[in-house]
Write a protein that binds this DNA or RNA. Structure first.
Lengths: 359, 359
DNA sequence: TTGTATGCGTTATCAT
DNA sequence: ATGATAACGCATACAA
């Protein structure tokens, strides 16, 4: 077999069988448009020539559809993968989109935040899904420039994009209020990321004045609204720089080392809370007798640790599903509606309790 | 601004500025081919017209490159994501490929095993990476038909594809030999998946005669080679149907309920081993005093449980990195070399020990 | 049921 | 430095 140098195309096949390109195309895309036996002949010839079927890229150019939804994450691949919230959300997203029709194109972030603008510009996708990106990441400018339908999960805000998030502020408020109700007056806050700049350490008022992540900002201001209403002044805040439990432990060690130490610790994610609980255990501080901890997200971890975590629940699957539905709607040509905000809920478990008497 | 109905193209822009398409194209791709001021003028016009830059699909058609590597998994998205081995491998893979150049196109599996053949046919990618797929999944026929460079991780075998895996058979042999050396004679095996058919339960000789996953087959025969050499006959085997720890616990309960019960449990993954250890604890069976357990993979979990797991280590990052390098080589036009087989190593921890006296 | 003509938006080669 | 022209491989409206 002389095996031509170049890969066979529709034309090659058409010539071989002695029909037109259109007929071959129909053999693949509209079986009802030609006789069964002609189709058989064409498919057999394809097999013989090693023709793999219509080229996906050329097809995309002609149909103006890619069959892919791009997902942009803030972190690199392994960090993204290790975030259970991402898995749940994306799984729900992709099944809500009739996964037969759309593959997932992963654009993971680099050190500077989201994926590089160049990657965004070159992504072959029908929709862009931004997942918890920083507010001013360069990727978002590229996203807007693409002119594709955009769905934003959590953050950042983007005009013209469909959005789904949760009531972060309300949830955070619930968390703080829960501890206030228990008589706590000495608070500390363990934040994940405030600015996308790799900083880890105490967050001063300056940093907190311009929080780079909408979600962090909402949660912080949710805490503050409850604290302010209770007349509680400035509260020490540690920026962990990620959601790894060990980062949480590190922050907690510092916070618990302050004088006077806090009796109530507000953690912006469950992972941080777990780390904080470990740190407390190492320091011989009883939870919740001496220290109350409240997490956020009600992740899988929350019930796997002892004491089980009091936390704010959000429905990740619903968030992913909603994102998928919004994407479908955009794809169908509809305008983006107002942001969808899913509710949050306080889940009381064993990591929180009354403030110790000796205040 | 009259805002044309259709999106602007290179032509639109060329007409607007009064230059040719080629020049506009050069403005984006070869800045050195035109004067800085002309380029400026073009870019400004693009901004004004809302032209987002060259269309990625059309560019792909012209350049014959997609800028994406497709990864095919056997399971659905959330299962895939929750497998830490996948995260580590893919992360290493993508960074080994100069991630600036290639996005990750995720083709997750459905109920029947790998992704649907149709999805494979339509995937816009330069390379296909098959990750631990069943030997005869329909996806693999589509993979072969595409005629693209293919890298296989673990399984299945595919002629013409580059492959990287580990010495599963040797590792399994080590695991069994370790227990034999400790005097064990009553063995049981906890397998993850033997056939891609959702079956969960005892695996009889019939099922074990045609194992659908190369990795499972290798591990099983690795166990057997050591057992055979020691004159140990048939060994009860449970097929968990997945790598979830709860599936492992279920299988272990059945295996430990047999008469006589095994003193040595060979688990094909660490997750199953963790589940088995939990089941043993619930049944009041001491590990390792009454039951020795050996896992496989040396996953993150192995050191997180008590007792820490004796297991077979494989270097997942190296596997991913190798896969990436193989992909690069294929992309550069080289032929696939012989399969790369990474070594395994026995890691002895606390979950294994001498066989109890009362044999 | 089949074929013709045209469009999809680029890049690349070769002139000029 | 810039332009003309030919690929790239396919889908589709329309004609036959």
């Amino acid at each position: 077999m002389p095996e031509d140098r170049r890969r066979p195309t529709l034309d090659t096949l058409a010539a071989e069988v002695g029909v037109s390109r259109a007929t071959v195309s129909n053999a693949y895309n509209r079986p009802d448009q030609l006789s069964e036996q002609l189709r058989e002949r064409i498919l057999r010839a394809a097999e013989r020539l090693g023709y793999a079927g219509p080229d996906p890229v050329a097809r995309s150019l002609a149909t103006q559809r890619c069959g892919a939804v791009a997902v942009l994450t803030d972190t690199n691949l392994s960090t993204a993968f290790s975030d259970p919230a991402l898995s749940i959300t994306l799984d729900a997203l992709s099944s809500a989109m009739d996964s037969e029709d759309h593959a997932l194109l992963l654009l993971a972030g680099s050190a500077e935040g989201g994926p590089s603008p160049e990657r965004v510009r070159r992504a072959q996708a029908d929709v862009l899904v931004a997942y918890s990106l920083a507010d001013d990441t360069p990727a978002m400018r590229a996203v807007a420039a693409r002119g594709l339908p955009v769905v934003v999960i959590d953050s950042p805000m983007l005009a013209g994009a469909a959005m789904v998030g949760i009531d972060d502020r309300g949830g955070a408020n619930l968390a703080a209020q829960h501890l206030l109700d228990h008589g706590h007056r000495r608070f500390a806050i363990l934040a994940d990321e405030i600015q996308p700049d790799q900083y880890r350490g105490p967050a001063d008022a300056g940093r907190l004045a311009k929080i780079g992540y909408r979600v962090s900002a909402e949660r912080f201001h949710g805490y503050r609204s409850a604290l302010d209403a209770a007349g509680i002044g400035e509260v020490r805040t540690w920026e962990a720089g990620g959601i790894d439990a060990t980062l949480g432990a590190r922050g907690a060690r510092w916070l618990l080392d302050q004088d006077p130490p806090p009796t109530a610790l507000l953690c912006m994610t469950d992972h941080l809370a777990v780390g904080a609980a470990q740190a407390a255990a190492e320091l011989g501080i009883q939870v919740p007798e001496e220290l109350s901890i409240v997490g956020f997200d009600d992740s899988w971890l929350a019930t796997q640790v002892a004491p089980r975590l009091t936390t704010i629940r959000q429905d990740l699957a619903a968030k992913g599903r909603t994102a998928g539905e919004l994407a479908q709607r955009l794809l169908a040509g509809h305008q983006a509606g107002p942001p969808v905000q899913l509710p949050t809920e306080l889940i009381i478990r064993e990591s929180s309790g009354p403030a110790p008497h000796a205040q």
